[in-house]
Write a protein that binds this DNA or RNA. Sequence first.
RNA 1: GGUCUGUUCAUCUAAGGGUUAGGAUUCAAGAUUUUCAUUCUUGCCAUAGGGGUUCGAAUCCCCUACAGACUACCA
Length: 507
Amino acid sequence: MSKRRVRVRFAPSPTGPLHIGGVRTALFNYLFAKKHGGDFLLRIEDTDQARYVPGAEDYIQEALEWCGIKVDEGPKQDGQFAPYRQSERKDLYRQYAEQLLESGHAYYAFDTPEELDQARTDAEAKGETFTYNALSRCVMKNSLSISEDDCKTLLASSIHHVIRFKMPDNLDVTEVDLIRGSVTFNTSTLDDKVLFKSDGMPTYHLANVVDDHLMEISHVIRGEEWLPSMPLHVLLYRAFGWEDTMPRFTHLPLILKPVGQGKLSKRDGDKMGFPVFPLLWKDPETGDTSRGYREDGFFPDAFINMLALLGWNPGTEQEIFSMKELCEAFSLERVGKSGARFDPEKTNWFNHQYFIKKPDEELGELLLPFLKEKGITAELSMAARVCGMVKERCNFVSEIWDQSYFLFEAPTTYDEKIVAKRWKDDVPAIMGEIAEFFGTVEQWNAPEIKEPFSVLVTAKGWNFGTVMNSLRLCLVGGSFGPDIFEICDLIGQEETVSRIRKAIEKI
RNA sequence: GGUCUGUUCAUCUAAGGGUUAGGAUUCAAGAUUUUCAUUCUUGCCAUAGGGGUUCGAAUCCCCUACAGACUACCA
């Protein structure tokens, strides 16, 4: 059984956009599969028609694709276990529910939602919690509490009914979780879960177990919120007689809010200004949009790198990993047990690391649309050169413009603080002399300008700090940016002189 | 309320009986860059609390506290 081919699945329900916790679950599944040369499947768990959101499934597919998580089998990829959408497997589940009915592991229940609500409020009034279990099922309306004939009559009538799992009484169920170790639950604290709903659809629990079995899933890797349903699932495998091929279970820790308590939610992102979704999402109902990492200018490999290290560590001090390296290094044993607080700052840092390593041409390509937005058309070679000059100062392509606009157009304003600090009475005259000097330079490139310039400043006895900073003010409009002579080089001789004259006039 | 899970610097985490408890992010300071950023150096900063076991505990056990998840004909 340990020789089984590794097959894992990511099984989201299409009720909205995939958030980063979901992406991480998908990622860990994918990394585990690839580490062991196995398969990664995508299965859409759309058994709840009421919560179905149009576009959510496409969003999930697109998000995984953007992240570089390749699906081996799924709705779009197909595979020998198709279909991979539970709504399309609907007809399959009934027979499995019936198998359980026959073997005495399940029963029909005819209680209406109103009756159940009543039972719950009654219990609450007494300070108790209602649970449908061995103690209470004899007083509810089901095939165990009523006569066989009555049951047949009810089934024959079109009255709504569900199929519930008959939870054994007072049985310890122990199962190993690959990152937590052995976990024990006593069935007397569990309830008779609905397996088959009155609308003819299976619940998550039934569909999940049936599909994992049929699709020969070897490992179930999912969020910690599923840990409490592990005993139910184990019992279902036993009831079906599938225990020898039951998958191993692993429950991943949650991703927590950056500050405060609780798990990360969409609100945290809105409040603190970072995305919680991989891609931009537009709610089809309300029209509200939520930011995405892709649209915010993050690179998918940086995003994935950050996510991988949230709750997992390689045991070495390496922090930057390509997807390929992650596939090789990953192991479930090195996933932490405790929830990880999400850190937007570190996410930016990861992006910066990838950003500065990108070739200038690639960044230039990405810069072009931003330039166009500013009404500037530039050659790719120019954009690439600019990116090379300022990328150390940026985390995102969107920040390049702020760091480099002066390489495309003359500054229109001058930073007042710098003016007050540097633009003393004698400065205009000095700048005038420098403009004149620049006009005489024959070979216009950075080193050829710098040499004689330094000689001039020394000969005139000017203060270097004042001259350099004032000159920068003329050319840039502030006190930032790349090497001054590199700037002169790039914008050209004529423009350099013109900017100095303009500054003398305007300041 | 019940059940389960968890708890090491502000944050992500390493160390799975023996280290001055290590690294990274953030923050602060210094150096470099005659600007800014980068880079480099330094600093700040942690084993939730209490009991055991042991020559020795962040590590094993128990209790307490705190946190989280679950407790639907949702997944």
